[in-house]
Nucleic acid binder design. Structure first.
Lengths: 201, 201
DNA sequence: AATATGTGATGACAAACGTCATGGCGGCGA
DNA sequence: TCGCCGCCATGACGTTTGTCATCACATATT
């Protein structure tokens, strides 16, 4: 019997996934959490064999949650499930010791297989995502460039970015300019979009 | 027995929802589609009582799909399910004759209830979404302003927007300026974000 | 010690952008 | 028929950007 903890913020999806997993005779969904904090509590209390984590949770992202769970429950295998197959996230997830990484586009059968695989100590990464991650390569941005670019999201004007980052407006423009050049974008807004898609910010 | 057609692009979620619905004795999931085109084919062939449609599908949005289904199968009740509770969409969906509108944050029980309700001829709209839609009000944008603002998404430069919309760059700037003013945004990028959130574009 | 790299800043210049006034044209309701 | 509104355009103005050269300082690498 494999005991499973589910962390997913959308109630309906959480329930549906639970229903799906409960169809397997050897699966036991012991807990369903809607937030990372809840999931962490439940992990400690229920000590599941496998934790199925959505990448985007309201309080913390799934990778940080996986790290926290590993610290408290090293024998628990974690699997990240996500709608947005951002290549950068995959790398961070693997670095965090996650054992499985799946987009929500896989079939139910694959999910079930993966749960069994990671429970037996194996690993599984979606092949499509893996090849994307390889072709996307590492982020060319310096840490500071990534910071500033992140602050530039939502169309924030330079002046405000400068204040939030405690930088001079000129410096902000320099970072944004070099980041856009590295990414190959025409302007910072496009740069933000691309960097987001690749999981660089 | 209520026969149900499911249209949802994410394979895993589609399977999970199907599993959830099949737990009900009086439900029969007769078809699962990943695209609007597929869903339309299946609707014609399987003539389901209820169609459960995701708002975002790769080829067409759920509202357009609902309209198409009604045209071919007037007795089929349609329910839209969505991750993004954009107020504007709710209005358009109701105008299209959709019988149910739910965010994915509702519980599995609610979904099941709603399916039964709409099958009996009733309607259901998520209360939270409804109040949001009311408070958000109608779009203040003229059709053309909305067009141009939509083209301005992804940080496209004005010159390119002008070409795609077959307008002079000056006109584009005028529309963008007035749209931003109406929305209360400092620049077009912020305007795009707000309009997106409210379902105006 | 020399070199490269990241961080932070300034100044200058051109291009892109936001705003406003103004005009013409067409449709639609009063 | 008149006025209002949406559509499209132009010109002018100031502001915000993107880009580049150049500098200083700190930290690693070789």
């Amino acid at each position: 019997m494999i005991s499973i903890l589910l962390a997913e913020d959308e109630h309906l999806i959480r329930g549906a996934l639970a229903a799906l997993l409960r169809l397997e005779e050897d699966f036991d969904v012991v807990g369903e959490a809607g937030t990372a904090a809840q999931a962490l509590d439940m992990a400690g209390a229920l000590r599941p064999d496998v934790a199925l984590l959505d990448l985007q949770l309201p309080d913390l992202d799934g990778i940080a949650l996986a790290t926290a769970i590993h610290a408290e429950l090293p024998e628990c295998a974690t699997v990240i499930v996500t709608s947005h197959g951002r290549p950068g996230y995959l790398k961070r997830a693997l670095a965090a010791g996650v054992r499985g990484f799946l987009p929500k586009t896989v079939s139910a059968e694959v999910l079930v297989d993966v749960v069994r695989t990671v429970h037996k100590g194996g690993r599984y990464v979606d092949p499509g995502l893996a090849s994307e991650a390889i072709s996307a390569g590492d982020s060319p941005l310096t840490p500071r460039e990534a910071d500033v670019l992140e602050l530039a999201a939502d169309g924030t004007p330079i002046e405000e970015i400068a204040q939030r980052a405690s930088l001079s407006p000129g410096t902000v423009r320099n970072y944004l300019s070099s980041a856009s050049a590295k990414i190959g974008a025409a302007n910072r807004h496009e740069a933000v979009r691309i960097a987001r898609r690749l999981g660089w910010i």
